[in-house]
Design a protein around this nucleic acid. Structure first.
Length: 568
RNA sequence: UGGCCCGUGGUGUAAUUGGCAACACGCCUGACUCUGGAUCAGGAGAGUCCAGGUUCGAACCCUGGCGGGCCAACCA
């Protein structure tokens, strides 16, 4: 792809879209396509959710359908408005807009009425067993369960009890409402599924209006039905729930055509975790600096790191959708990021580990403002910034070797290199600290005819290095981020170990003495750049300020030199 | 051990539904280059988990194995 346009309409043809197409052709839903993204507002959205968002909103876009944002807020104990708001922000940032924003809690009354209807029709009953009794009578995967002693309560008694549950007459755990399905069903989830539990807890939206709350298996399908969803997409681990989904719909009398559940594989990404539980542990255990730590796989973390939303959507397109579990190369995300940034991020020069260079042939107080293009020729986008060239410069310490290794194309004694966007210089003298022997300064001469031109005598310059003016460059802090974990699958831990044992100790390296060219001073925080030869960076939206600049590394550049060095 | 689901290059997905296994990432060569980036050209890498069967023909259908995932929260 890259220079070409993304595959757009030719690309996406997964089994779900194929199903949508076939439903459209058969007229099953009268030409309607309605999806929804149904997060529980109990944490932050992550890259795995992004896959689901791209799928649901993407399908709606492609087929002229609708996609709702629906909060599955049926568990008051874990949910919070701040999570809900952050989720909405993340979805918008990804570039999607919902048709309607809805809440399961808006439907509590309707769900309650359906529950009473089920009771009246003998399809649900109030069970008064304790949690342990219920667990014991549910059986196991190989043995059938036993009917609850309360299973045959009279309708009137069930109704009375259920109403009193709602009225708050009972403490948590005293009773539950159960569907009368089949305690011997081979699918454990069908053994009289719990429909309602008592929970005297404050709900962030309904307050104390309710003290009974519907369970996922009861609420989710009904929410879908109320919203007139056509394709209810969820991840593979809900496969067994589908039977309950259909059972509940039947029980309350939802007629066809009605929402149908289809499962797809959740995203597993190398070198990170995407389970909410583990993400919470990382935050609470202060292994990271919060939900938006740039190392987190959360949308907020990726955003803070500087990853553009288009890159995440490109990534989701690349990985596709299937019903097979797997895990995706971290490199694929990096590719998607580089591929969008290469065409959008203006170039700057930044020296991470400065080594002083004095151009002895250049006048003492002269300043030359060089016009340097924002993008290289092959990107072909207009624009330029001005770079001050002076007698004293900083270059990258790693770009000099007193005794160069084979194929080293940078600076060494007697060798010429191109200073990016400026002159060709030659290293004449190496100044060392007499005490330590450390190289402290390079004394070079420049070829004054090589600004914007190759040497007139035709000699070839084999390397180009980056630099900044010693006087005009700005000090800055640069945070080099790497993968959060040092193993591809942190979920795979041996007995007694924790996934946090595999945290990469070098996932963040803070460089404090870096110097950057002045043409970033007035940019708003969050601006993305390519620091040439180094990587893609963005100023940190939280901590970077005009006087004290902070840059986050989004992703390094591909580096075939480093790769060669590693191999040989 | 019961039920449900899934096995295609290193990775992620395709294969017009029974017709020469394709695309992307990654990897390797080379060209080009004022980024060891980008771009361009080329290459290696699976015979589709295994064994049978049906068929002129099977990744696709059937049977049996093997391997993996999910399910016994008053979570979602």
């Amino acid at each position: 792809m890259s220079s070409k346009q993304p595959p757009a309409e030719t690309g996406r043809n997964d089994f779900i879209r194929a199903m949508v197409v076939s439903d459209l052709e058969s007229g099953k839903y009268g030409g309607r396509v309605a999806t929804r993204f149904p997060p529980e507002p109990n944490g932050y959205l992550h890259i795995g959710h992004a896959k689901s968002i791209c799928l649901n909103f993407g399908i709606a876009e492609e087929f002229g359908g609708t996609c709702n944002l629906r909060y599955d807020d049926t568990n008051p104990e874990t949910e919070d408005e701040r999570f809900a708001d952050a989720m909405a922000e993340d979805i918008r940032w990804l570039g999607y807009e919902w048709t309607q924003k809805l809440h399961a809690s808006d439907c509590f009354e309707q769900m309650y009425e359906w529950a009473e209807q089920m009771i009246r029709e003998g399809k649900a009953y109030v069970d008064s067993q304790t949690l342990d009794e219920m667990r014991a009578s549910r059986g196991t995967v190989t043995e059938p369960g036993r009917n609850s002693p309360y299973r045959d309560r009279a309708v009137e008694e069930n109704l009375d009890l259920f109403r009193r549950m709602r009225a708050g007459e009972f403490p948590d755990g005293a009773h539950v409402l159960r569907g009368r399905a089949d305690m011997a069903h081979p699918n454990m989830l069908m053994r009289d599924p719990l429909l309602y539990r008592i929970r005297h807890a404050h709900h962030y939206r309904t307050g104390d209006e309710w003290c009974i709350y519907p369970m996922y298996d009861y609420a989710h399908c009904l929410e879908d039905a109320i919203e007139d969803i056509t394709h209810s997409l969820c991840t593979l681990e809900f496969r067994n729930n589908r039977e309950v989904y259909d059972w509940v719909l039947d029980a309350v009398g939802i007629e066809h055509p009605r929402p149908e559940q289809t499962e797809f594989a959740r995203l597993n990404l190398d070198y990170t975790v995407v389970s909410k539980r583990k993400l919470i542990q990382l935050v609470d255990g202060e292994f990271v600096d919060g939900w938006d730590d740039p190392r987190m796989p959360t949308i907020a973390g990726l955003r803070r790191r500087g990853v553009p939303p288009e890159a995440i959507r490109t990534f989701c397109d690349m990985i596709g959708v299937a019903d097979v579990d797997g895990r995706v190369d971290y490199g694929k995300l990096e590719f998607a990021i580089r591929d969008t940034l290469n065409w959008t991020a203006p170039r700057r020069l930044c020296v991470l580990d400065p080594l002083r260079v004095v151009i002895t042939s250049y006048p003492e107080n002269a300043v030359e403002w060089i016009d340097a293009p924002e993008f290289p020729h092959d990107v072909g986008k207009p624009g330029s910034r001005r770079m001050p060239f002076t007698r004293e410069l900083w270059i990258e310490r790693a770009d000099f070797m007193e005794e160069p290794v084979r194929k080293f194309r940078r600076l060494s004694p007697g060798v010429e290199v191109r200073l990016r966007n400026a002159y060709v210089v030659r290293c004449d003298e190496v100044v060392k600290d007499p005490a330590t022997g450390e190289v402290v300064e390079l004394r070079c001469t420049h070829d004054p005819d090589t600004l914007g031109a190759n040497p007139a005598d035709g000699r070839k310059i084999k390397g180009t290095i980056h630099w900044v003016s010693a006087d005009h460059s700005l000090p800055c802090e640069v945070r080099l981020y790497d993968r959060l974990f040092s193993v591809p699958n942190p979920d795979d831990v041996e007995e007694g170990a924790s996934f946090t044992d595999h945290l990469n100790p070098e996932s963040r390296i803070v460089v404090t003495g870096a110097r950057i060219e002045p043409a970033v001073a007035d940019d708003p925080a969050g601006t993305r750049y390519q620091f040439e030869r180094t990587g893609y960076f963005a100023s940190d939206p939280v901590t970077s300020e005009p006087g004290s600049l902070v840059f986050n590394r989004i992703v390094p550049l591909r580096d075939s030199w480093a790769k060669r060095a590693r191999v040989t």
